[in-house]
Every structure is written in structure tokens, then in C-alpha cells.
């Protein structure tokens, strides 16, 4: 897997996971302390964390907690000989990690295979994935072209949609592998949000338009601090399916109060979403044709 980088945190560097992973060609960065590893996480993009449990300056679970705060989709593996019964989880009850025993004969090979698999298939994300996620991401990647500047257009359609439905916020969002990127907005100035924090992450799983009349009544979002801190109370989203049938994102409405939508309004929202994705696709095709002719 090209471009992959794994942070290996182990107080005994030479006997740690980095040696095993380097041996099978997986690039690593290393740290022998919790503080050093946190600094690495802050300075460097890593695709996976492999950590011992016990360090002189803390616990490997502190590192996992740090990852979940800063890059929540990053898979984490506790690679240790400390039995699970001796691992203190009191302060870390919601942390999901892969647990692997370090001292087993084939531990290095198994670690390498697990690291690659968890990265490739997004094995520890805090949301549900569409069945065709790999194909969906490949379809989305087709829109990542130099010169594909659609900011003004996406802001404009967001304004039109916001006025039509009389809501304070509307946006065009693309749901990428780990983030939702906002192509254009009206009423807010968002750039991107972690995918696990966004409602559109759930919308792309649906075949119909999705409505959340009050997020404080919805089990998926009622404790989502990001949404609550943005003041979001209600949501309606229509998927943008390109001509190959892949959902690349959603056109959405936000209100700061609970709100209901009629079937007619949702049908209109879907028409706007269809129009938006057609515009986007046409722009992509024109740009690609220009590049090809040069």
C-alpha cells in the first residue's frame, strides 16, 4: 500500500513493532514515550497507530484517546504482552482498539496484515459504511481535478436552496473517505468536518431523502458535540448520485430549530440535488476534455 505510514509507540524500540513492520516494507515512524508519540501525531499524518500499553510516562490508551480526538477514523492497535485483564480502562471506556499479543511466533506478520487491512477497509470508523464504499470513493475521486473550482457556483445554489426552503443554512457537501468537504454553503462558512461528526455520513446510506426533525431526539446525533456546538437542530438532505449511480455527497438544509418537511418539499430538494450533481458532472467532463486536448 503506497503512501502508508504507521506510528509505532513502544518503550523498547528495538524489540517493538516498527522492526516487524519495517521488515515487511511498511513505513513507520517511532516513539518510545507517550509524550513523544503525541507530538508525532500532532506533527505528522499517520494512517495507523500501533502502541504498547505501558510506558514510563503513561499508558498506550492515552495515545488512542489522543487519536480519537484528533483523527478519529485512524485505526489503533494495542500490541502488548500485558493481558487485557491487567489493562486499566477506567478512564477510557469508549475506546475501540485491536488487541494483539506481541510475543507470539508470527506476531509481526499478523500485525502487518492487520495494519494493512484496517487501513484499506476503514475497520475502526465510528459510523456505518455504504456497501459500495470503495467504488463510491473511486467515483468521488474523479472530481478531484486541478482547476475544478466550483466554490462560487456551489455557494450560489446553496443560497437559492436556502431561500426556496426558508432555512438559515444550506450547503453542498461531498462525503470523502474521512471528512465531509463543503463545496459551497449559505449561512455558514464551513470547510470540512470529520466524517463521524456529520449527518450526511448517514444520508449517503439512504436511498431516499433523509430528514432529522430534531437531532436531540435521534440516537445517532443526540450526543454529537460537534453538531450541538454548531447549534444544529434539524436537517434535511438529498443525495447527489452521479451518472454512474454512486452517491458522492448531499445537498442539505439546516435549521436552528426543530422542523418538519412535506413530501413535496423533499421532492423539490431531491430535484435541486439532481441539478447540482449534473452541473458538477458537466463541469468535470468539460475540464477533463480540455485537459485531454492540451
Amino acid at each position: 500500500m503506497s503512501g502508508m505510514r504507521v506510528l509505532c509507540a513502544d518503550p523498547d524500540g528495538s524489540a517493538g513493532p516498527a522492526t516487524a513492520l519495517d521488515g515487511i516494507g511498511i513505513p513507520t515512524v517511532e516513539s518510545e514515550t507517550v509524550d513523544g508519540a503525541k507530538a508525532q501525531l500532532d506533527e505528522t499524518d499517520v494512517d495507523c497507530l500501533v502502541t504498547e500499553y505501558e510506558f514510563p510516562d503513561g499508558s498506550g490508551l492515552e495515545l488512542v484517546d489522543h487519536v480519537r480526538e484528533t483523527a478519529p477514523d485512524t485505526p489503533c492497535i494495542v500490541f502488548t504482552e500485558t493481558p487485557p485483564t491487567e489493562i486499566d480502562t477506567a478512564r477510557f471506556e469508549g475506546l475501540i482498539v485491536e488487541y494483539m499479543r506481541k510475543g507470539m511466533p508470527d506476531a509481526g506478520d499478523r500485525l502487518g496484515a492487520t495494519v494493512q487491512d484496517l487501513i484499506q477497509y476503514s475497520g475502526q470508523v465510528g459510523y456505518l459504511l455504504p456497501d459500495n464504499e470503495q467504488e463510491r470513493l473511486a467515483a468521488l475521486e474523479r472530481y478531484d481535478l486541478d482547476g475544478m473550482d466550483v466554490g462560487e457556483w456551489a455557494d450560489r445554489i446553496s443560497t437559492l436552496v436556502s431561500n426556496h426552503f426558508d432555512v438559515p443554512v444550506a450547503f453542498v457537501g461531498l462525503v470523502d473517505e474521512e471528512e465531509e468537504n463543503f463545496l459551497g454553503c449559505h449561512g455558514v462558512d464551513w470547510d470540512s468536518l470529520n466524517r463521524e461528526d456529520t449527518i450526511c455520513t448517514h444520508t449517503v446510506l439512504e436511498e431516499e431523502t433523509m430528514v432529522v426533525e430534531d437531532i436531540t431526539d435521534d440516537h445517532r446525533f443526540q450526543n454529537n458535540d460537534t453538531l450541538l456546538s454548531l447549534g444544529i437542530r434539524s436537517y434535511a438532505g438529498a443525495n447527489m448520485d452521479d451518472s454512474t449511480g454512486h452517491t458522492i455527497g448531499s445537498l442539505c438544509l439546516i435549521d436552528y430549530e426543530p422542523r418538519e418537511y412535506t413530501d413535496e418539499e423533499l421532492a423539490d430538494l431531491q430535484l435541486f440535488a439532481d441539478e447540482a450533481v449534473e452541473q458538477l458532472e458537466l463541469r468535470r467532463e468539460i475540464l477533463a476534455a480540455r485537459e485531454e486536448s492540451q
Binding site: L61, V78, P83, P84, T85, I87, T89, F92, E93, G94, L95, I96, V97, E98, Y99, M100, R101
Partner: peptide
């Protein structure tokens, strides 16, 4: 304590 449940299960 999903952290402990998951690690025990994995082990």
C-alpha cells in the same frame, strides 16, 4: 466499558 469488552473478546 467497550474498551475492555473488545480487548477481552479479541484476546
Amino acid at each position: 466499558d467497550l474498551t475492555a469488552v473488545n480487548m477481552q473478546f479479541s484476546a
